[in-house]
Simulated assay, not measured.
Amino acid sequence: MESLNLDAIAVVTNVYRIAQGLKNKMEREVLSEYGLSWTSFSLLYDLWIGNQVETKKLAGSAGVTKATISNITKTLERKELCYRKVDNRDRRITYVTITDKGRRIMEDLYPKFHQGEVEIASNLSVNEQKNISALLRRIIKENHF
């Protein structure tokens, strides 16, 4: 067996730990008040920015399957935060659109979510934040994440 690359192990382990940690922190401290999971928030955020988005694109953005998006969308529809509409020309394509209620929720929720982001990165200087972002983007790009 070849020797272990401890630096690679440390990078991957730490990225995983921070991803899980921030997801759990935000769900517990911000999203639970609105009855949203991390993935449902991510979907609602994409709709808030894009207004109407194809399910395939939502799945790619959230890193989940179209089936998962379908399930989350059903839950968000029951809460009247979005609705689905099949494309008139191609019935295989479904679009999801944010509702006015969904938009109001995001306008109330996002400043609290952003404050959580600021707190998570607060121990790093602006330069360190830029450096870590650039390095993470490189990993994302080179691995097609």
Rank of each mutant, 00 (worst) to 15 (best):
T39F: 04
V126N: 08
K23M: 05
T68V: 11
E80P: 02
K141P: 05
I132H: 00
T55Q: 10
E33H: 11
V53S: 08
A10I: 09
G102V: 00
Y45L: 13
W38C: 00
Q20G: 09
R92M: 01
G102Q: 02
Y34N: 03
D90G: 00
G63S: 01
K130P: 05
F113T: 02
I18N: 10
Q20S: 13
K66E: 10
N24L: 06
V118C: 05
L31T: 07
L31I: 04
A19T: 04
L58E: 10
Q20K: 14
N88E: 15
R84M: 04
L47S: 02
G116D: 08
G60I: 02
V86I: 12
K66M: 11
W48L: 03
G21F: 00
A10E: 10
R89N: 13
G102A: 02
E27T: 01
N127F: 10
V11L: 13
G116M: 09
L31C: 06
I140E: 14
S70N: 13
L135H: 05
R17W: 08
A19K: 01
G60H: 03
I139N: 06
K25L: 09
K74R: 07
L44E: 03
I49E: 15
C82Q: 02
M106D: 05
V126R: 13
M26T: 00
R91T: 13
N14A: 13
M26F: 01
A121N: 08
H144S: 14
Y110T: 08
E77A: 06
I69E: 09
V12F: 06
Y16F: 14
H144T: 03
R138Q: 13
L124M: 08
T55E: 13
N51Q: 14
N24D: 15
I18M: 12
R137E: 15
L22K: 14
R84E: 12
N123E: 09
M1C: 11
R103A: 07
E142C: 08
A134S: 12
V53N: 04
L58P: 13
T68Y: 01
E142K: 11
L36W: 05
K56T: 14
V12W: 03
W48Q: 04
T94E: 15
M1H: 10
T13D: 05
D7E: 14
L4I: 15
A8W: 10
L36D: 08
T39S: 09
D100G: 11
S42Q: 12
L76Y: 02
E29A: 00
N123R: 12
R89H: 09
L136P: 02
D46A: 12
R103F: 05
A19C: 03
N88D: 15
L44I: 08
L58F: 07
N71K: 11
G102K: 02
G60M: 07
T75K: 15
V30M: 01
N71R: 15
I105Y: 05
